[in-house]
């Protein structure tokens, strides 16, 4: 079965926890990751932390990207990390994007979110970081 010399595509789950309906940013990032060769599993809006973790495990992703604009990140992100830990899947890196104040971002990074992108971040930076994080896990 072994044949390809090309590396296998990296898989990333892009999900929006929380109740806001603003998924433009998540879609733009999904598309940029697709163009960089990722297989992007797009889970869509209003995903609970439980749904996100279940999808990540079923899809066997190398990376999880969370997008949020509702302000509930301090409740929802740590919940995702805790559930991953409970499933012994903490090796899957999690990055995030959205409106996240600096102080919150510092605390979330300490809690284990590997990268946080605010408004105005270039897609190039997001893609490069995503590649680095996913490869470290894959």
């Amino acid at each position: 079965m072994a044949r390809t010399t090309k590396p296998s595509p990296l898989r990333v789950l892009i999900a929006k926890p929380g109740l806001d309906g603003h998924d433009r940013g998540a879609k733009v990032v999904a598309r940029a990751l697709r163009d960089a060769g990722f297989e992007v599993i797009y889970a869509g809006l209003r995903q609970t932390p439980e749904e996100i973790v279940r999808a990540a495990l079923e899809e066997d992703v190398d990376l999880i990207g969370l997008s949020i604009l509702s302000g509930a990140h301090m409740a929802l992100f740590p919940k995702v990390l805790a559930l991953l830990k409970k499933e012994r899947a903490s090796s899957i890196p999690v990055f995030a994007g959205g409106i996240i104040p600096d102080e919150d971002a510092r605390r979330l990074k300490k809690a284990g979110i590997r990268a946080i992108f605010g408004p105005g971040t270039s897609l190039e930076e997001i893609v490069t970081t995503a590649q680095r994080l996913a490869r470290s896990a894959a």
Partner: peptide, 11 residues
């Protein structure tokens, strides 16, 4: 082109 994809059936 890129070999990548967006898999959206989960939505």
């Amino acid at each position: 082109y890129s070999g990548g994809s967006v898999l959206g059936d989960r939505i």
